[in-house]
């Protein structure tokens, strides 16, 4: 579903992402782990079309993002690490805006907004302007907006930051549920326990390079992901 081949991204002379290759299959949850500044967010921003890149290719369901960005974007949903959504709109106005852009049928839209807004306990606040929301509520709106157009792949950058424990639990449930339906999920996180429990595959990125990639059980074996991660950094 997502194939990254030899991706390289530079900021001036500095190489932020250095020749990385990743494959995410349908129905797979892929965890992307690394310390601050390792290149996680840059990689994610290249995938979703925010950043252009010098070398390599990104394919969504076989389509190259450079050749057909609109079609690729219509299959993806992205939740950024900071949920900066249109603060002048109300929650429901923003969700309808997203629904219109992705041409979501009004019956399905209503059904999905109801379902996710109630599950994440933000339904009653949908009529308020987003500027009055807390960080966690904005994060919930960003999550719902990503889910209402039934994407084939979800790209999440630190999705659990700012969410209350109940909402974190719900989000994990939703992620599993989507995977069962064949949706792929690519997400970055610093919460290694969650990554270990949730993911089928992971990649550890350090200084722009992938230092470990594969199935979670092959990488961790009997150890915890935290130990593996620390030993990877210790190998430097």
């Amino acid at each position: 579903m997502l194939r990254i081949t030899n991706l390289t991204k530079k900021y001036g002379d500095k190489i932020a992402v250095d020749d990385i290759s990743i494959d995410v299959n349908p129905g797979e949850i892929f965890g992307f782990v690394g310390h601050n500044g390792a290149g996680k967010t840059t990689t994610i921003k290249c995938i979703v079309g925010i950043l252009s890149f010098e070398k390599g290719n990104i394919y969504i369901d076989g389509l190259n993002i450079k050749d057909d960005p609109i079609k690729c974007k219509s299959m993806m949903a992205y939740i950024p690490d900071n949920p900066d959504v249109y603060e002048n709109l109300t929650g429901i106005q923003y969700l309808n805006f997203v629904g219109d852009v992705y041409s979501v049928n009004k019956t399905i839209r209503r059904e999905l907004i109801d379902k996710y807004a109630k599950e994440l306990e933000i339904y009653d606040n949908l009529g308020s302007v987003i500027s009055s929301y807390s960080h966690g509520m904005k994060q919930k709106i960003a999550i719902i907006s990503a889910l209402i157009h039934s994407p084939k792949i979800l790209i999440l950058d630190e999705p659990f930051v700012g969410l209350d424990p109940k909402a974190q639990f719900k989000l994990k449930e939703i992620m599993k549920e989507l995977c069962d339906k064949g949706v792929s999920i690519f997400f970055s996180s610093h919460v290694l326990e969650v990554v270990q429990k949730l993911c089928d595959k992971i990649a550890i990125i350090n200084k722009g390079k992938i230092v470990k990639i594969g199935k979670i059980e092959d990488i961790t074996k009997d150890a915890s992901l935290e130990d593996v991660f620390m030993s990877t950094l210790g190998d430097e």
């Binding site: 979703v48 079309g49 925010i50 609109i70 079609k71 993806m76 959504v85 852009v101």
Partner: peptide
């Protein structure tokens, strides 16, 4: 980022 990541 919203406009950049949407299929528009």
């Amino acid at each position: 980022w919203i406009l950049k990541t949407m299929p528009i």
